[in-house]
């Protein structure tokens, strides 16, 4: 086991996790808003925001899917030591971590069942940066409309069309987080290639 996997947990787990959860809650409850989420440090290229979110929501009861450059031995070790989440494929993941490209196709993930729409995957999409300069959002959590830079448009629209089934998204970059639940309606054609982490 790498020494790296022994560090990067929250300093004061109950308090730090509570603050991180509130950021995640506000982000998902108000799509288009961007929040600070801090305290977790995982091996590169995992952002501080994504590491904090994993520490806040994941444990041995949540199968996790690592995709692309986010599936490294160092990251697996870190997760084994800090979180204990079993590493699985997309078809049985409660959470998934990767860049937008690496997570494709998102239709591989769980969308829940009509009786249990909550049995779906939450995708943590690592971005280069977060910005409100982008697609127009409407729906629960949004007073009239909001905007958020998204790595794509159509897959999110198709995901919304499944409502109340579907996956939910978090976008993370540095210490910032934004959320996009399946309930959000998306319009606009702007695709920001530049926001994709590489």
């Amino acid at each position: 086991m790498q020494e790296q996997s022994l560090i990067g947990a929250f300093e004061a787990p109950p308090q730090d996790a509570a603050r991180a959860f509130r950021a995640a809650l506000e982000a998902l409850a108000r799509p288009g808003t961007i929040h600070e989420i801090k305290g977790g440090q995982a091996p590169a290229p995992v952002s501080e925001a994504a590491a904090s979110l994993l520490l806040t929501l994941c444990d041995p009861e949540t199968p996790l899917c690592l995709m692309g450059r986010h599936d490294t031995p160092e990251i697996r070790d870190w997760i084994a030591f800090q979180i204990g989440a079993p590493i699985v494929g997309p078809e049985s993941a409660m959470f998934a971590l990767g860049t937008w490209t690496a997570l494709q196709p998102i239709t591989n993930f769980l969308i829940g069942t009509p009786e249990y729409p909550d049995r779906s995957t939450t995708l943590i999409v690592e971005m280069e940066a977060l910005s409100q300069d982008g697609a127009t959002l409407a729906g629960p959590g949004i007073k009239e409309t909001a905007t958020l830079a998204l790595p794509d448009i159509e897959p999110f629209q198709m995901n919304h069309a499944l409502f109340p089934l579907g996956v939910d998204f978090y976008f993370t970059a540095g210490t910032q987080i934004a959320g996009l639940p399946r309930s959000t309606r998306i319009s606009g054609t702007q695709v920001l290639e530049a926001t994709e982490a590489n």
């Binding site: 995640a24 909550d118 959590g141 109340p164 939910d168 309930s183």
Partner: peptide
């Protein structure tokens, strides 16, 4: 802190977020 152990809080927090994503649906 806040009585519940961290694993229980994580379980409740996940349920709250699903509830937010599917407004009005009762998450077990």
């Amino acid at each position: 802190f806040a009585y519940l152990d961290e694993q229980t809080k994580r379980m409740i927090r996940r349920a709250i977020l699903k509830g937010i994503a599917v407004p009005g649906y009762q998450v077990p």
